[in-house]
């Protein structure tokens, strides 16, 4: 494997661990390796920064969604209303 390919695989792994870390699913060992990689990889550093930023922004917004059951019941009611009104 050429040098270039090796770096690419490393970066792929690093971004994967970085993604997992956003959901607190990365192990300590993985995070340690990621941090070592970040020391010399600027691209991954940028990615990591943006990724963390996205997580904090979403947390800050306190965004919420309706759950699936609720949406299903809404759909049913709309369907029924469509039939009743014969639209």
């Amino acid at each position: 494997m050429s040098d270039k390919n090796k770096t690419a695989t490393r970066c792929d792994k690093a971004t994967h661990v970085c993604d997992k870390a956003q959901y607190k699913e990365a192990t300590i060992w993985e995070k340690l390796k990621l941090n070592i990689h970040l020391i010399f990889c600027g691209t991954c550093r940028d990615y990591s920064k943006n990724n963390a930023c996205l997580t904090s922004v979403i947390e800050k917004s306190k965004i919420c969604c309706l759950d699936k059951a609720c949406k299903e019941s809404m759909k049913k009611q709309i369907d029924q209303a469509i039939k009743e009104n014969d639209l």
């Binding site: 965004i63 919420c64 969604c65 309706l66 949406k71 809404m74 469509i82």
Partner: peptide
Amino acid sequence: NPNKWVDLYADYLYNYTIA
């Protein structure tokens, strides 16, 4: 197109309301 309303807008409207 009312059939797509829930998928497309339910969350958006919900967040608007909850604020």
